[in-house]
Design a protein around this nucleic acid. Structure first.
Lengths: 125, 125
DNA sequence: TCAACTTATATGACACGTCATTGAATGACA
DNA sequence: TGTCATTCAATGACGTGTCATATAAGTTGA
């Protein structure tokens, strides 16, 4: 029933879980305490910062993250309320929105990214 | 600012996240639909099934999972309500509890474990 | 051009996890 | 033994994620 291969799979899985939780937790706590945003919020900022080219992005961003569409929408709500991001409706397709960092958002992202990368390095070594 | 090493770290991180969410999601949906328990519940069942030797385990189980003590307590609540596990108070230290699978719990764990291992194999290849 | 269908985002109800706190039992030591 | 600190587990308030659905805009084809 519990073959050696099974055990090895389970070990591998626990190791992934452990890395994931340790890393995500460390980043989340650091960003929360220094910048008052969570990991999820940062990840959206990071994606928006990356895709600097114009596009109707709300949708496309969704394809680059494991987040649900509905989760995305709520994260963007929070970021907008925090004044870090703005939604602009798309001329070609008024159902779509594209996102843009505000100046504050860009500044915060810059600093937070340093922290983020540092913690990744520390935890994924 | 964005060194190649940074990009590589971020890529590695996204890959871990993706594997984690894909795998956890697949297992969770499968267990939910076939056995009406979630991944979290299964993981506790699995830990209890593993540590068949007697001990005041609630605490010790906590050390083997990234879950919070409070989360553990609530998961065990659900498992107990579902009749899959039972809490027994510990003679030596009446603050502690140890856990035991019920017959139903053992049976369900046996079947669910097969599914669990299969999905790990599929997703962690 | 008007239905019927599809697509993009928002929203509400709900489930689950975390943090902070509580209650109870234990330990340490004057 | 009496006090104070510590440890184990449970609980309530709260935040955030998911699913199902709503709303609005676009598409298709007779």
């Amino acid at each position: 029933m519990a073959t050696p291969q099974d055990r090895q799979l389970v070990e591998q899985w626990r190791s992934i879980q452990s890395t994931y939780f340790r890393t995500a937790g460390a980043i989340d706590r650091a960003l929360e305490s220094r910048f008052s945003i969570g990991l999820t919020e940062f990840e959206i900022l990071d994606l928006v910062a990356e895709s600097a080219d114009a596009a109707c992005r709300m949708k496309q961003l969704g394809e680059r993250t494991p987040m649900t569409q509905s989760a995305m929408s709520k994260v963007v709500d929070r970021l907008e309320k925090a004044g870090l991001i703005s939604r602009h409706s798309c001329e070609d397709d008024r159902r779509s929105l594209f996102l843009e960092l505000t100046d504050a958002g860009r500044a915060l992202h810059g600093e937070a990214a340093v922290e983020h990368r540092a913690l990744l390095k520390e935890n994924l070594a």
